[in-house]
Nucleic acid binder design. Sequence first.
DNA 1: CTGAAAGCGCTTACAG
DNA 2: CTGAAAGCGCTTACAG
Lengths: 341, 341
Amino acid sequence: MINIKDVAERAGVSSSTVSRVLTNKPHVNVSSKVRRKVTQAVEELNYQPNHSAQRLRMAGTSKLIGLVISGMLNTHFNAIIHGVSDLAYTNRMNIFLCNAVGDVARERYYMSHIRAERAAGIIVNPQDYDNDGPYLDELRQAGIAVVLLDTTVKGYTFDSVTVDNRQAAYQAVEHLIQLGHQRIGIVSGRQTATTAHERLEGYKDALRNADLAISNDLIKDGQFKEEMAYRATLDFIDMPTPPTALFVINEPMTLGALKALRERHIRIPQDIAIVGFDDTPWSAHIYPPLTTIAQPTYALGREAVRLLMRRIDEPDAAHLTVTLPTDLIIRDSCGAKKGAF
Amino acid sequence: MINIKDVAERAGVSSSTVSRVLTNKPHVNVSSKVRRKVTQAVEELNYQPNHSAQRLRMAGTSKLIGLVISGMLNTHFNAIIHGVSDLAYTNRMNIFLCNAVGDVARERYYMSHIRAERAAGIIVNPQDYDNDGPYLDELRQAGIAVVLLDTTVKGYTFDSVTVDNRQAAYQAVEHLIQLGHQRIGIVSGRQTATTAHERLEGYKDALRNADLAISNDLIKDGQFKEEMAYRATLDFIDMPTPPTALFVINEPMTLGALKALRERHIRIPQDIAIVGFDDTPWSAHIYPPLTTIAQPTYALGREAVRLLMRRIDEPDAAHLTVTLPTDLIIRDSCGAKKGAF
DNA sequence: CTGAAAGCGCTTACAG
DNA sequence: CTGAAAGCGCTTACAG
């Protein structure tokens, strides 16, 4: 592996000079003759500066960012990664992808890795509202910019990018109520995630607002997982008086609910209406086309990077929360297009 | 940001000693008293060794791997990333995620970044069969282990993990032929990707084997993109004698084809049968449920890491190609379940 | 068992 | 305009 000294030797200059032409700063002058010799040597040797050495030398100018997400099997996060990677590329920042897979210990491991790498920043979808705060604050203390994605964290304020989950859920459930549903079940997620908590609150708001009772029988925890939602849905079906509509608060769980309904030959929306959360390219093609809350996923990813760049530039700027709009996409699974119940 | 010297000072030892207890190598001895003092100081100061410095010092022992994929909006790659990230985590390797987005220049940028980071290895889905070889060989010369994913590269041999694309395509098209189809269109991809090339060859094999003519009218390039496939499908529909069946060779393009068919109210499979490539959790829920070739995506990701670890350990081992099996999942879009034409 | 010293590959004041 | 030297934070022979 060739280094700056090799280049210097080949070009017949000092390594200081090589560095100068390569870093190419506005106010340092190098004669064009020397510049040419160096450039040529770099090309001939196919020299590539060692980023580790550069980072070591220039502490605090890292071009690395950590992206910690809680799962890959979810179009929501996939699209966020897409948005993050695009704007990161524009800024020539490089991404450590950290897939926590819903495992808090693994999330912690990744956080410490990001610190050990002296990344400039971290974009994270915290999994543990109650306990992640101190860990993230530690990163911040260590000079790493922190931006939260989707969820927030107890006791600490960070820049964050999210949607109004409560309002979005309210809108979804209100829509079902307007279609005449009175018994609406919700397949919710881990309440340690603020997204799940807020979506559940939005569900309750909508019921309250319509003077409908809030019944614990109609609230089931699918833990954001397909399999758990599958079982929760079966439980709903097996109730003496099953709900006439279901609100399922993420994509994998919507798949689980659909699976359960299919197996039991429950017709959608005639027997049970469904509204999901998160739109995917497939949503329009399923049977029946899925009514769902769409999040601006790609934009969420981009905004996260934007906030991060700002925080890196101005570590002491006021904290910002960017809230992006959601969209209730009405298709057929809610029954709206076939008339109210 | 605190460093090893701070720890040494606090513990009242030299930084050599701190390093010794932290690296914790089998045959170096540190008295348990000193060990305790160091451990305590590390905890009190919440010290985290600087990975860049470690890498610089211990050249050739990087724990970083680059993962270069050609797109994020594709369940295939998402699941591969999942597999890669899981096994990487097991090996405590960390991932630079590089989303080339179908852009060769961006792919090249990422390759040079990975080299500049002195990563231990790179797992890459090369986009350009004709020209990527020399770039990847350069990485290899620089001591970076290379594993190819899905596609290969002209003129150079690397470890690679893939499926038998030609055979898989053959099976898909043969299935359509057995159902009575004689005019089978293919929505193919960039021929600079070996996957696309091989799938097209498999398509031709199946036609030839059934003594059916290979017509260029029935071969359209969707460039692996939804929008292009949408247009290609419209073109198919508008032919004087449209095909009675379509083979679409990846997920985004299948979405595009479905969209075109829906818009024109073409019934599947009665008017046109469809077989896709790549299974997703949604495939079973669409209307009609999609017949498709499923790839073992998660396993592909894991195998790629396995090959990479092997190559890192034994840089001069013989090159390996791991070929994983695909599965033709017969649902309804091919018409098999409703009887042959 | 422990410490002082060298060196990994860079960048950047400091001289000239 | 260019070079010699120091130093970023580590690890590891080398002494003792």
